[in-house]
Design a binder for these strands. Structure first.
Length: 409
DNA sequence: GCGATCAGCT
DNA sequence: CACAGCTGATCGC
């Protein structure tokens, strides 16, 4: 058991950052590395800030130090960047915003960060300290829904409905212009009643366009949670000695297991020490009060998503010697290929073998296509700068055509 | 050995 | 598929 546990999901903090400080001498050696052939290599190079010479030589932006910060991470007219920590010191940037604590956004942060103050929510601030050992003197925690002045700009962080600590960044410049950077977010109707979004017209919107394609339709979080709870109840009725497992990678998806714990009164939630420490740092009493140290006495376990295979879960079940005789696992992923919409959730077919059953559920922490469209139509910004799916001109053009359509109808 | 990075993978 | 990592290889120190 210990072997399985340590090897598969307890590696020194499990959730620790792998990407750290840029090294000044990483240059030449990287060029020898294998590279993926790409048709629009040249175009990508230009987009990601390689100079023309480098592009003509066929260089990819593999060298961190020579790769410059893409334009969409810089906020014009301000000394700010957003989620830009992997480019060393950025010229003209005196305040580095971090929208939320996921590695593709905080990449480059670590104990040696020294390029300037990092502005984020208090949950994200605690995670920077706990997980990445970022020097406290660089961390500036801002409360949600409170206006601050930073470098002559009025700043407000707004709940992003993504992972814990994720924020939208609302900026009001001295010249009267208003910008909104969504970081990663899931747009919702309730966001549309936020006072600051109702008070100021947004000139430029930096938008999380992860699912900016009509094929991305999925149910609300509430519908998925309801499905998970109903399914759990059904399995427990049939087999009371079922172990419930919820997969998760770093932070995010907490509501899924919290809802199971709350609605089924199977109080204790078991997870490993490193994840527990992180979850407790959120300061959510309804969650922190439910943890158990004992794998054997808790019927609800939170395990790394990568661990959720039929084989692993079957082994895991064996290690809990007789306490449980079946496993019901949920794999909350952004989007499932199966066309599971709100009304079709019950059509989701699990994979199962022996006494292990795994359900993939479309619990998304990004906006669906329709949610994105409704949010943009509500804001009616003059300009939209997508921050995701920007590496190919094809997808950029497609998105721009959609934006034009939304704003002109 | 250790930290940092990337391609490849899921 | 796409998310948000994880793994192994490799490099510099």
């Amino acid at each position: 058991m210990d072997y399985l546990y340590k090897r598969i999901y307890c590696k020194c903090g499990g959730l620790k950052n792998r990407g750290l400080q840029i090294h000044p001498n990483l240059g030449i050696s990287m060029e020898t590395r294998k590279r993926k052939k790409s048709e629009n290599e040249k175009e990508q190079g230009a987009f990601f800030g390689l100079n023309q010479k480098e592009i003509e030589k066929g260089k990819k932006p593999a060298i961190v130090q020579s790769r410059s910060c893409p334009f969409y991470k810089k906020i014009p007219g301000t000394p700010f960047t957003v989620d830009a920590f992997r480019y060393g010191a950025i010229e003209g940037c005196s305040a580095y915003f971090l929208s939320h604590f996921h590695s593709d956004h905080y990449g480059g942060l670590g104990k040696r960060w020294c390029h300037g103050p990092i502005y984020c929510t208090s949950i994200t601030a605690r995670l920077l300290n706990i997980c990445l050992s970022v020097n406290k003197r660089y961390i500036c925690a801002l409360e949600l829904d409170k206006e601050y002045e930073v470098g002559g700009v009025k700043v407000m962080l707004i709940e992003a409905n993504h992972c814990p600590g994720a924020a939208l960044i609302h900026l009001r410049l001295r010249d009267g212009r208003t910008y909104l950077h969504t970081g990663d977010f899931r747009a919702s109707k309730s966001m549309q009643s936020h006072p600051i979004l109702l008070s100021y017209h947004v000139n430029v919107l930096y938008l999380d366009t992860t699912y900016c394609n009509p094929k991305y339709r999925f149910p609300s979080k509430e519908e998925v949670i309801d499905f998970v709870v109903r399914t759990t109840r059904k399995y427990l009725q049939k087999q009371p000695k079922t172990l419930i497992v919820v997969g998760a990678y770093s932070i995010g998806k907490e509501r899924v297991y919290l809802a199971i714990s709350q609605s089924l009164q199977i109080l204790p939630i078991y997870t490993d020490a490193s994840r527990r420490k992180i979850l407790e740092s959120f300061g959510w009493s309804e969650l922190s009060g439910r943890f158990s140290n004992s794998r054997h006495s808790s019927p609800l376990h939170v395990l790394p998503l990568s661990f959720l295979s039929l084989e692993n879960l079957n082994k895991y079940l064996q290690t809990l010697n007789q306490r449980f005789n079946a496993v019901l696992a949920f794999r909350p992923t952004g989007w499932t290929f199966s066309e599971a919409t709100g009304s079709k959730l019950d059509m989701i077919k699990p994979t199962s073998r022996g006494s292990v059953t795994i359900f993939g559920v479309p619990y998304s922490e990004h906006s669906s296509f329709n949610e994105l469209r409704d949010f943009v139509k509500f804001l009616r910004p003059e300009k939209i700068i997508p921050t995701v799916n920007v590496s190919s001109s094809g997808s950029r053009d497609k998105m721009q055509a959609l934006f034009n359509n939304w704003l002109n109808s």
